[in-house]
């Protein structure tokens, strides 16, 4: 089996400050990897470097493209990279408003990626949008409403539908449940888990919430001060952490 994403030697600095450094891993098809660490540990910087939102100072991000096999996305031309971003990749932002067009209806938001890759049949686009709203548990009756009229949880689910409509293979998520109520979080997590399994998605999830990764991630990467300090199977890292910082992180979580 070849990895879907091969990351080597990623380094990003902001002046003399290290954003992240010496990051390397392979992500295989269908795998969900969590990146945890406290604020400022470099996890979001790393995610942005992987997803092409930031250019790292050095390193490789090799993605197994459908047409041409493994390609270093950092060496791709910008049109290729942007094409990847709206077809095989998806990015779920922490704040839904960063990932949605707030002045466009729910249906238009979901349909945009389809139209961006050439869909030109209104009826078909609308059917896909309605189907996807159903899959993220938004009533079809809301298809013509703008996201401004949606609750936070609904906006987040709409953002997910908008991202998954083109059947991407790799999803980047930045604190996907951040800022949501606990009950809303549970619903979203359950939904994401189902989608990940049914679509065979690979995903990289950045979060500081260990409960989120326990439910969603197969494996974990723990970051501190820009360095990866521990990796492994999610339950192994959480139940039998080896590094001092990871032990501190795990033991700091309040038990419910």
């Amino acid at each position: 089996m070849t990895p879907l994403l091969s990351v080597r030697d990623i380094r990003k600095t902001y002046g003399s400050h290290v954003g992240c450094t010496d990051v390397a891993f392979d992500l295989y098809p269908g795998e969900v990897m969590g990146i945890v660490g406290e604020s400022g540990s470099g996890k979001t910087t790393l995610l942005n470097c992987l997803a092409g939102q930031l250019t790292p100072d050095q390193g490789q991000v090799v993605f197994g493209t459908r047409e041409a096999g493994p390609r270093d996305t950092l060496q791709m031309s910008e049109p290729e990279r942007r094409m990847l971003r709206r077809t095989d990749w998806a990015f779920v932002h922490q704040h839904a408003r960063d990932g949605l067009r707030m002045n466009v209806s729910a249906g238009g938001n979901v349909g945009e990626r389809l139209m961006a890759v050439g869909a030109r049949h209104y009826g078909d686009i609308r059917d896909s949008a309605a189907d996807w709203l159903g899959r993220v548990e938004i009533s079809e009756a809301r298809i013509d409403d703008r996201p401004t009229t949606f609750s936070g949880g609904m906006q987040q689910r709409l953002q997910i539908a908008r991202n998954l409509v083109t059947n991407p293979r790799l999803v980047f998520m930045d604190e996907p449940t951040g800022g949501l109520d606990v009950s809303v979080q549970a619903r979203l997590l359950d939904l994401l888990r189902g989608l990940v399994r049914d679509m065979g998605l690979s995903a990289i999830i950045v979060t500081h919430d260990l409960a989120v990764v326990r439910l969603l991630a197969d494996r974990l990467m723990v970051m501190k001060d820009g360095h990866v300090i521990e990796t492994g199977l999610t339950d192994q890292v959480l139940d039998d952490p080896q590094e001092p910082y990871t032990q501190l992180l795990v033991s700091s979580v309040l038990q419910v």
Binding site: L233, D239, D240
Partner: peptide
């Protein structure tokens, strides 16, 4: 048991 399951290192 947990080591056999891979849960403990």
């Amino acid at each position: 048991m947990r080591m056999i399951y891979g849960n403990y290192f």
